[in-house]
């Protein structure tokens, strides 16, 4: 009987906790409706399409290819990124560059974002700092897989 009474007290305590959450949150919701600004909010929800959370500075988002001063890609088609890529989503086709300093440039540079796992190894592997994942763009969902294949134009632009 005493044990049952202990349960009963715990049951009451549980409902007190939820009631407290309800009352406190409702209080802040009502303050918001009345137009009174408070530091604390009634809910922790971020209402996504309208409100966005800041992306961390190290967040790995959509790739971009860096360019030289003359607008050509900085990439020298060394294939290190394609080699290190664990999901094999990078395809690079090299071509000869007239400039002997550079030697090679990518004729094709294709990333299949449908396969990419955003590990960031390509960024780490790149000796020329030609590929970065710092665009901050995380909203590139598409209706077809074909639209997820990004080529040189899309990656530079």
């Amino acid at each position: 009987m005493i044990k049952a009474l202990g349960y009963f007290i715990e049951i009451i305590r549980g409902s007190v906790i939820t009631t407290r959450h309800f009352v406190v949150n409702m209080f802040f919701h009502i303050l918001k409706v009345l137009g009174i600004k408070t530091k604390r909010k009634g809910a922790v929800t971020i209402q996504y399409p309208e409100q966005k959370k800041d992306i961390a500075s190290r967040h790995r988002s959509l790739h971009r290819l860096m360019t030289r001063e003359d607008g050509k890609p900085r990439c020298v088609a060394c294939m290190l990124c394609a080699t290190v890529c664990p999901s094999e989503c990078i395809y690079v086709e090299a071509a000869e560059d007239p400039d002997p300093e550079i030697q090679k440039y990518p004729a094709k540079f294709i990333i299949d974002l449908g396969r990419c796992c955003f590990c960031g190894f390509c960024v780490e592997a790149c000796p020329e700092d030609a590929i970065r994942m710092d665009t901050g763009n995380v909203e590139f969902a598409q209706y077809s897989q074909q639209d997820l294949i990004y080529d040189l134009d899309k990656l530079i632009g």
């Binding site: 939820t18 959450h21 309800f22 949150n25 009634g42 809910a43 929800t45």
Partner: peptide, 10 residues
């Protein structure tokens, strides 16, 4: 709505 308010949601 009530469950949301109890759990700090909207």
């Amino acid at each position: 709505k009530e469950s949301a308010v109890i759990q700090d949601r909207i």
